[in-house]
Amino acid sequence: MIAGAGSYAYVLSKNVSADSPTSPAAQEDVSSRYNSIASKFDKEIETTEYWTGITKARKKMIAEASGDVLEVSIGTGRNLDYYDWDFKGFNGKVKSFTAVDKSAEMLEVAHEKFSAMFPGVIGVRWIVQDAAEPIPGPPRNANERSGNKDAKYDTIVQTMGLCSVNDPVALLKNLSDCVKEEEGRILLLEHGRGTWEWINRILDGSAQGHATQWGCWWNRDLEEIVKESGLEVVKMERWHFGTNWKFELKKPKTTTTVKEEVKAVAEDIKKQEEKVVEKVKEKVEKVEEKVEKPAQKKGWW
């Protein structure tokens, strides 16, 4: 515990410079950095993640994933070893898997890892795209890549991803559209602002250098980001001076009242449209009568 905290404090204290912006809107997009560091990424961070307890936290959280699983910002697939798979003789909890990452190079590393684990399994989707954009539904089964368009995911996973996207709130709102209402879960393992001001000063001072090197901004206010997303917090844990976060989130079930209000508004709009259409028809008919009706001749002929 002490060794882990000491290691983490050392990591934070490196490359401290001028303060960096904390708002995602003011932070530079550094996500392209991942394509250039994909091949060496695992080797570079393996030791740091082990000694700071991130590896252990990954294992613990990923074990909770089940059903149709979507992992966004999958990177080099550092979580693949920890899923309870239901593929090729494994009778686990994860029956389908969809992987999304903006970096094609990082995603290819993850793909190679999975192929070595489960050669011949084709029912896994590997998608190169921004996770804030619409994401296809889960594969129908382990032997078919085609997605089930109307289906939602049981579990969505993201580890160390909110730090590297342009608009983390938009990303979470998009994930909310992909997960099952009420019963589905979004699991996040992230790093961001801590509970102590001196830690946050270190984070702010080193954020620009860290972002340039690793493609992520580690001084974001994650609690505020989650709050703005509209997702409901089921459970939240923090450690390492509050800078590491684990969230279990869910999409609140749409209440009957809200549904009824939406339906009523839609019906009212429809009625208004019908009235407008009827009035337009009446005017058109009057105009057509004037055009088609021959002018009456006056006088004697």
Rank of each mutant, 00 (worst) to 15 (best):
I74R: 05
D42N: 05
E71N: 11
V291P: 02
S164D: 00
E108N: 15
E282V: 01
N15F: 10
K253V: 00
V128E: 11
D177Q: 15
D130Q: 12
E232H: 08
E112R: 15
R33D: 10
D84Q: 14
Y153G: 07
I2L: 12
T47I: 04
G137Y: 03
G120S: 15
L231D: 02
P168A: 14
W198T: 09
G161V: 04
E144W: 07
E285S: 01
S66Y: 11
N166C: 04
D154L: 09
N15Q: 11
W218K: 02
K253Q: 01
E108Q: 14
E274V: 06
E183S: 11
I2F: 13
I135R: 04
S17M: 03
L172S: 01
A170Y: 05
S7N: 10
V284L: 04
K56W: 05
F41S: 06
P119H: 12
Y34M: 12
K14I: 04
D81V: 08
E282P: 05
T55Q: 03
A170T: 05
D130H: 10
G67V: 08
S17V: 00
N200M: 03
R140A: 06
N143A: 04
S229V: 06
N91S: 08
W85E: 01
E183D: 10
M160V: 14
T195F: 13
T55M: 02
E182Y: 05
A99E: 12
E190Q: 13
M117Y: 11
F97M: 09
S7G: 14
H240Y: 07
D204S: 11
T159S: 15
P119D: 15
E144D: 11
L222Y: 01
G77M: 01
T155S: 05
